[in-house]
Design a binder for these strands. Structure first.
Length: 403
DNA sequence: GTCAATTCACATGAAAGAGACCACGGTCTAGTG
DNA sequence: CTAGACCGTGGTCTCTTTCATGTGAATTGACGA
């Protein structure tokens, strides 16, 4: 991995000999040496997790913050430091297990989360086919075979809880009572600030022994971050005046998402490069902003299952025909017609209702539940795709559905 | 005109089924010594 | 005798159906002024 990134570095600097010096610095998997404006948070995390150095159990920690506020990065930084320190001190009674609950393949269900944990302990467990309790006890056996401390980092727990239910966290927090030798501390990381509120009180009290909030970056802080990275990423004098400020301003509007800011800068660079410009200009940022939005949407649409695409196609057709609002019933009728034409199986209205709700979540449509009095209750739906995306999306759907 | 009851067209929830996937253990078969 | 092929059983996982319940305001119809 590390070798590969080095090779990338070389290739990047030779092949595109104009703007980028090292594009990897701007990519989302890059781990910077320095995390600006997060000193307080990092210190807090460090002081909370410090007892592990003496082999004590730490309080469970819960970290909130919107995407791109450096939560994962900061926690990982502290943990790396701890591991290093532990190694210096010469004991190996500490293990850190990190699971990202958002990654579908890795951890979409209780079973898979535990399976992933076991895998990280160098154990092997089949991807499916075993009873969940069995996997649980296997995990407990594995960590309880000697006296040791386990730090369990659950990234994006809110996703897992939404998918599974909160009693799996409860089980995890309760695990200590079953363990004779080992001790487990849990670090939960969540994007949602309200996540804790609708949690079982038992879970809340045990998981939230310590809480830490990562506030969004403001535009100035984002500028610092961007400046630092841009220096490594680009050759000298490739940034036009105000480019960084603009990136920062745009990203600050998106709840201070640093990852977004870096993406903007990188994509802007790529666009400028493709245009054979020797400088990144302000207009490239705008183009990048649009492109990111557009690519994201199109990618989502493309990778959606057939039934979802059929529903979206129905919505788009209605959107063209009708100038008035669209309602669930209209969509279902249109959808049925299209299914018959394309010889697809017709799902029930109940299901379509859920699919529509999911499109709403994705931001492709905007659905509002309204009551039309005697005409019943329904969703009022608006397509939220910009005109240039719409055309492209239509092509994708036509292609995917053989229309 | 006013007020409460009614009613529509879905929303929203819970539970359960279908079918794909997989592990495990047992049985069968063919190849080996 | 043993390795591998081939079941049957029992588990998970995702998508879906079925059944049940909820809901907000336009409409209705009774009522009184």
């Amino acid at each position: 991995m590390e070798q590969e990134s080095k090779i990338d570095k070389i290739f990047n600097s030779f092949v595109n000999n104009n703007l980028f010096k090292d594009k990897t610095v701007l990519q989302s998997n890059h781990t910077p040496d320095n995390i600006p404006h997060r000193d307080i948070q990092i210190e807090s995390v460090a002081s909370i997790l410090a007892p592990t150095l003496r082999g004590e159990k730490t309080s469970n920690l819960f970290v909130y913050g919107k995407t791109g506020t450096g939560k994962t990065l900061s926690v990982q930084r502290v943990i790396n430091k701890i591991m290093k320190k532990i190694k210096e001190m010469g004991n190996d009674n500490l293990k850190v297990l990190y699971v990202n609950c958002k990654l579908k393949k890795v951890a979409n269900t209780e079973y898979r989360i535990i399976a992933e944990l076991i895998k990280q302990l160098k154990g092997s467990i089949p991807a499916t086919g075993l009873p969940t309790n069995f996997v649980y006890s296997r995990f407990i056996d594995m960590i309880d075979d000697k006296k040791q401390n386990i730090i369990l980092v659950l990234d994006e727990v809110d996703q897992a809880v939404k998918k599974i239910s909160d009693n799996f966290i409860y089980t995890l927090t309760r695990m200590n009572t079953e363990l004779k030798n080992a001790q487990v501390s849990i670090v939960g990381i969540s994007n949602s600030l309200t996540f804790m509120d609708n949690l079982d009180p038992r879970v809340r009290s045990s998981l939230g022994e310590e809480e830490l909030v990562f506030p969004p970056y403001n535009a100035l802080q984002l500028q610092d971050i961007l400046n630092e990275r841009a220096e490594k990423a680009f050759r000298e004098n490739t940034l036009e005046e105000g480019v960084i400020a603009k990136c920062a301003a745009l990203a600050a509007r998106e709840h201070g998402d640093a990852r977004r800011a870096l993406d903007l800068l990188r994509v802007a660079g790529e666009i400028a490069e493709r245009e054979k410009n020797d400088k990144i200009k302000l207009q490239h940022i705008d183009a990048a902003n649009q492109k990111i939005e557009r690519d994201k949407m199109l990618y989502i649409i493309e990778s959606e299952p057939t039934q979802f695409q059929l529903v979206l196609w129905s919505i788009m057709r209605l959107n063209e025909k009708e100038t008035k609002s669209i309602f669930t019933g209209d969509i279902y009728n249109e959808y049925q017609k299209i299914c018959e034409k394309t010889k697809n199986e017709i799902l029930t209205q109940r299901r379509i209702s859920d699919i529509i709700a999911e499109f709403d979540m994705l931001g492709i449509i905007n659905a509002r539940v309204i009551s039309k009095g005697r005409q019943g209750r329904t969703r009022e739906i608006k397509l939220m795709l910009a005109a240039n995306i719409k055309e492209k999306a239509k092509d994708i759907l036509k292609d995917a559905l053989n229309l």
